[in-house]
Design a protein around this nucleic acid. Structure first.
Length: 429
RNA sequence: GGAGAAAUACCCAAGUGGCUAUAAGGGGCUCCCCUGCUAAGGGAGUAGACUGGGAUAACCGGUGCGUGGGUUCAAAUCCCACUUUCUCCGCCA
């Protein structure tokens, strides 16, 4: 959601932004919002006036009653009755208008950062950095589930056919242990960098869902609990950003660097579906996440910090990665700027997404009411900026891990930082 | 899950239809005075937020007693629903 005051003062900026995102179909919304807002403010002004009159007259009735002048009081009552209908009508209209305005505001995209490359879709994302050699070994790299099966590490059939359906899995043995090890290592990796560790709620109210994501994301991602106002989180970002709902933060308490663990549940309705076999795209996975809440002027710097954390994490596990900057057309509506971190797949001989780093600007803060108390009275309170990034999300990450560490003899090496979490083992066989 | 009690400002708390929410009283905090040293006394200040008009001013309005409705000219106060907390009972890792 963008600032309604921005629409009042500079609708052209908003229009330009919509065009950059190739969402011309949303252009009419701008004029609609401006017109609705005008009508809304007129209604408010009139309504406030009437209410003021009523308050004054009611007080007078009270005084007359107190003085025992009943007849005069009864006569005065009639003055108010005349206003009641108009006020009721205006009140109703105000609610309608607010709803109409909000409906439109929610789908008008956030103003993107000037540094974001302009492009239609993900094919026009721009590679900005690479680390590690994207090597292709001279021995074959099997499909990741086949590597897992060789270690008796995955049971897909039972999960799919009898228990939960396609998109679910059992991990077991060393592969399950590896999964936990990666998450534990990721947790400690972030704690060592000064992030506070959280285990958040795994279900959240709809009010939080609406605050942290756009409507289309919600439709395609979120599982709803039947009969309750609760949704399973798609990422701990949802409950972690939601934590700040309706709050005022002290300037001195910022930036807040948090890292959280949670299972993540996603319907995966839409473009990709879950047609890929294996554990690349699934309904349930686990993730170590990082989020930052900061002052607006700090968010570009924080964005770089977040991104580097993930890159460093993968480098420490000796997995080659590259970073792609999302172009305007591929940027979700709430995002100001976003990067995808991709890991190398020796089997497919291409990179695939393992993490996504986003600066949401004040979009989530506006929806959720996350404000910063200004020490400068003149300046007034202002909205915070929110950012999030994946540290690591297995089991998808295990695909990269297994493919890159698989040896010619079929064993898998365990990089040094992970060994303490794997009972000291330096390889799996 | 059942029964009872409660929700007012930074904290405690008074207020049971209007004439002090312009929120009593206490505590805390900030400043000042007196005093002169692990103290005591006196005085002043202490809603914030959202929002409309106005010029991003001065200023003038609207909303606010857990949340949402209702009754009324007028609701902290009366009615309904919900939420949360506390006590007791039941159940459970």
């Amino acid at each position: 959601m963008i600032d309604i005051k921005l629409l009042r003062t500079d609708p052209d900026l908003v229009r330009e932004n919509i065009k950059k995102k190739f969402q011309d179909e949303k252009l009419p919304l701008v004029d609609e919002v401006i017109a609705l807002d005008k009508e809304y403010r007129e209604a408010v002004t009139r309504c406030d006036y009437l209410r003021n009159q009523r308050n004054v007259i009611s007080k007078r009735i009270g005084m007359l009653m107190g003085e025992g002048k009943r007849d005069e009081a009864e006569a005065t009552k009639k003055e108010v009755t005349a206003m009641a209908d108009e006020m009721a009508a205006l009140d109703q209209r105000k609610v309608e208008l607010q709803g109409e305005i909000r409906k439109r505001m929610l789908v008008i995209p956030q103003i993107i950062d000037p540094s974001v490359p302009i492009g239609k879709d993900d094919s026009e994302n721009v590679e900005i950095e690479r680390f590690g050699e994207p090597l292709v070994p001279d021995y074959p790299i099997p499909y990741h589930t086949d590597i897992m099966k060789k270690f008796n590490g995955i049971e897909l059939d039972a999960a799919r056919d009898k228990i939960s359906g396609n998109g679910f899995y059992y991990l077991c043995g060393d592969i399950a242990r590896l999964h936990s090890a990666v998450l534990s290592y990721a947790r400690d990796f972030m704690i060592d960098r000064g992030y506070t560790y959280y285990i958040p709620p795994f279900m959240i109210h709809s009010s939080v869902v609406n605050g942290v994501m756009s409507f289309s994301e919600m439709e395609n991602m979120m599982y709803k609990i039947e009969g309750e106002d609760l949704y399973l989180i798609g990422t701990s970002e949802h409950s972690m950003i939601g934590k700040f709902i309706d709050s005022f933060l002290e300037e001195d308490s910022l930036p807040q660097r948090l890292t959280s663990y949670s299972p993540c549940f996603r319907k995966e309705v839409g473009a990709h579906g879950i047609e890929e076999r294996g554990v690349y795209r699934i309904h349930q996975f686990e993730k170590q996440e990082m989020i930052i809440v900061c002052k607006p002027e700090d968010s570009p710097r924080m964005f770089d910090e977040l991104w580097k954390n993930t890159v460093d994490f993968f480098r420490s596990l000796e997995i080659p990665v590259r970073t792609l900057e999302c172009c305007s057309g591929d940027l979700a509506d709430l995002k100001v700027k976003s990067l995808d971190v991709e890991a190398w797949s020796p089997r497919q001989q291409k990179y695939f997404e393992v993490g996504s780093c986003s600066n949401l600007g004040d979009a989530q803060a506006r929806r959720l009411g996350i404000r910063i108390k200004s020490k400068d009275k003149q300046k007034g309170n202002y909205f915070a900026h929110t950012l999030n990034n994946t540290v690591v999300a297995p089991p998808r990450m295990l695909i990269a891990f297994l493919e890159n560490h698989l040896q010619a003899d079929g064993s898998v090496t365990v990089p040094e930082p992970l060994r303490p979490y794997m009972g000291g083992k330096d390889h799996l066989e």
